[in-house]
Design a binder for these strands. Structure first.
Lengths: 369, 369
DNA sequence: AGGGCACCTGGAATCGATATCGCAAGGGTC
DNA sequence: GACCCTTGCGATATCGATTCCAGGTGCCCT
């Protein structure tokens, strides 16, 4: 690998001049610049960014901490952040926590040691004291995505308005007469998302004179199997409520699978709404009501906050709130009353036909074969 | 930030001894180690990995080049690779090409400059000469995922057996009597995936005495809209074949959306198969036949190849082929004959009812409201 | 003519770690 | 007791860039 010394030697100038010529320093003669560029072209010289970073005390790297890249929504955020960050000449260091809060903290330390200039955080647990301490010890700007850590004063935040979104969605169900609504959330208090959604749900209930029923509140890590398990358990106890609100999008396939397998017709035997929108929600039959928001925008705004802080170092951190929209679809276009009727009708029908097992799947398969 | 000198001063030892104590060097007395550890604990010292990398000529970073992180399959691969790589004590630098081949090349250069120890490649276009040159100039191990660059001798590769998978899938359609099969692929010759799939498709046709019909071969960048457009255009010309093979998974939602919108019933009016498996394919009604493979395994094997080469520097690069499985589902459980009957029946039925527009969607909505 | 000021450029110090070398002390062998 | 080898540790050079400082040149102004 050719070094700056080699280039300087060939161009017959000092190493410092090579740096100046290549970094667009104002006071460089055209002649010198030409000589340097010629030598660079000749040797194919590319500066060693490790060495440059060491001396200049800036690696021109940004770290992204993400709780789980398998979640397509988070992957999308990383995608768009990487786009903005690399356009600005920075490189992304990726740290995936794989759902483990301890890794959040480790990642901050690692990124710090690697001298990243800034960190974007989509951690597992924003309440983790060690994580907060690690972030407080990080010298550069920090931006939280759908997270909030009031104690961390150097941190900006970009959040979606989950409270309002969830409130409206729940209201929609309540207005259709649903009084028993299952809330199937992620870890409820580890992130801003989780808390705000639950708060919105509770507020809507309260405004309709209802209280949160503990038996209708389920929470677990955002892994696919959890959705199946909860539905299976409720059906086993014959305790499926008339409406279901599903939080983190990894739950959705599991919930739908189990409902189908048990022959429960979404939009007829139960109302179903998701707090994240996905292609599956749109293309499912019937399409599933969901809250949608632009991950693209979330990422871009977050990247802008970071990059602005990196450019002008005296910019105050701030919090930006982005809108969430309710996408009403047929999966919730059923009243509580209709659900009750449909279920009792089916129950007697099934008794007559003594059908059992997985009528939903069988029906789907039978129609096509 | 405390440096190694500060730690050495506090411990009353030389900086070199601090390095030795912390890096597990064999010839270090317990006493010295204790002193160093105490000083480290006292100061909270964390070595500057930029400086360490500069001197030791190894950044302990691995670069991952990915064509598009919005594709959940690729995100999954990145997820699992990051897991294996970080477990081995390396950090991941992420470079996203956003579908632009020029960025593939830029990314290799950037990663090289940042002195990554190895590169994993899921590029847009493996045929790009500049990319190949850049990779050849990279000194460390390279692993290609679902890509092949024979000219690059330092590169290992992990590929899925797309040829055989696609062959079998196509065979299944042919055996159901389909003679007109639309092949909707990604950019066909830029990657191993694209080429092998098409080769498998063609071979199956040939073995049944058929040739590839140019009007039934469509290719475009793997963006969602493309799927819609192709189907729309065929339906406008009333030229939808009896079976469709869809390649890259971003196309699937578009294809399904357009078919639904036009009232074409998947599994009855057309047979549909996908070359990538997704939750949508499984949960769609009817479920969609697809080729499945373990991205987890792909990533783990690739990571293992890389890490083995990093550990024992004289390990030969090699190519690993992983299996692909055909998941037969109801979407293809319709013969060409049945498709013809269904279509003519519907056509006359529709004429009688003068139905038009988007009967598929309307039907779905009507059932639920 | 001389002083002051831009403008360019080179030399040397520096960033913070690790690698190399050399020295001293301790232990074993003949 | 002399010699050699091993072990433990410090001093110093080094990785490859950037930054800082100083000096030279040319120009303008007084």
């Amino acid at each position: 690998m050719t070094t700056i010394k080699e280039v300087a030697r060939r161009a017959g100038v000092a190493p410092a001049s090579v740096t100046r010529a290549l970094s667009g320093h104002p006071n460089v003669s055209d002649e010198l610049r030409q000589k340097v560029l010629a030598a660079v072209a000749e040797t194919g010289y590319k500066p060693d960014l490790l060495a440059a970073g060491l001396r200049s005390r800036s690696s021109r790297c940004v770290g992204i901490i993400v709780s789980d890249l398998i979640n397509p929504l988070l992957a999308e955020v990383v995608h768009y952040m990487e786009m903005a960050i690399s356009q600005a000449g920075y490189t992304v260091l990726l740290a995936n926590s794989h759902g483990d809060p301890a890794r959040d903290t480790d990642s901050v330390h690692t990124l710090h040691q690697r001298r990243v200039d800034a960190i974007a955080v989509m951690c597992v647990d924003e309440r983790n004291a060690e994580l907060q301490q690690a972030l407080a010890g990080f010298p550069g700007p920090v931006v939280l995505l759908d997270r909030e850590i009031p104690s961390c004063e150097t941190a900006s935040a970009v959040v979606s308005d989950h409270y309002r979104g969830t409130y409206r969605l729940t209201e929609h169900l309540l207005e259709a007469g649903h009084r028993e609504i299952l809330y199937l959330g992620g870890l409820l208090d580890t992130t801003h998302v989780g808390r705000e959604r639950l708060r919105g749900f509770q507020a809507a209930l309260a405004d309709h004179g209802l209280e949160m029923r503990p038996d209708l509140l389920r929470a677990s890590r955002a892994v696919a199997q959890a959705g199946r398990d909860v539905i299976a358990e409720l059906l086993d106890r014959d305790a499926l409520p008339s409406a279901i609100v599903v939080g983190p999008n990894p739950f959705v396939p599991g919930v739908l699978t189990e409902l189908h397998a048990r022959g429960v017709r979404v939009g007829q035997d139960v109302a179903l709404a998701s707090l994240d929108d996905t292609p599956l929600a749109v293309l499912h039959q019937p399409p599933v009501t969901a809250l949608s928001r632009s991950m693209d925008e979330l990422a871009r705004v977050a990247a802008r906050l970071l990059l602005d802080q990196l450019a002008g170092s005296r910019i105050q951190p701030r919090t930006v709130v982005l809108p969430v929209e309710v996408q009403l679809r047929p999966s919730t276009a059923v009243t509580a009353e209709a659900v009750a009727q449909n279920r009792s009708r089916r129950r007697s029908g099934r008794r007559r036909a003594s059908g059992d097992g997985a009528p939903g799947l069988r029906r789907g398969a039978g129609a096509a074969v």
